[in-house]
């Protein structure tokens, strides 16, 4: 049971949240011209990193809002959470992780 700091509500148990996998993937707006391969990359391919991961969560059983987190996928430690649209407060150079 992770303890996740919702940027709007504060720390809450993981059971209140819904996972959204990798963050900062923009849906391609003009996708008609994309090749099948490029489109598949958007739909299916994910970093799935061992180490730091910028990922999305939704506080489903709380404020209902989506936000982002930087979490270590090995230790489960959450380094930071931040609102959708904001930059990740932790860069790839910190903690030696892979972003």
């Amino acid at each position: 049971m992770l303890l996740i700091e919702c940027p709007h509500c504060g720390p809450r148990n993981e059971s209140e949240f819904h996972y959204g996998d990798q963050a900062h993937i923009a849906r391609p707006e003009h996708n008609e011209g994309m090749s099948d391969q490029e489109w598949a990359e958007y739909v299916y391919l994910r970093e799935n990193p061992k180490g730091l991961f910028r990922e999305r969560w939704c506080h489903t059983a709380g404020c209902g809002r989506w936000f982002n987190a930087v979490r270590d996928t090995v230790s489960s430690r959450i380094m930071a959470t931040y609102k959708t649209g904001e930059e990740a407060p932790i860069g790839a150079d910190q903690e030696g992780g892979q972003l």
Binding site: M1, E14, S15, P49, E55, T73, V74
Partner: peptide, 11 residues
């Protein structure tokens, strides 16, 4: 969620 921790959760 994504994890390489080889451990799951209580719930």
């Amino acid at each position: 969620y994504c994890s390489y921790g080889q451990r799951g959760s209580m719930h």
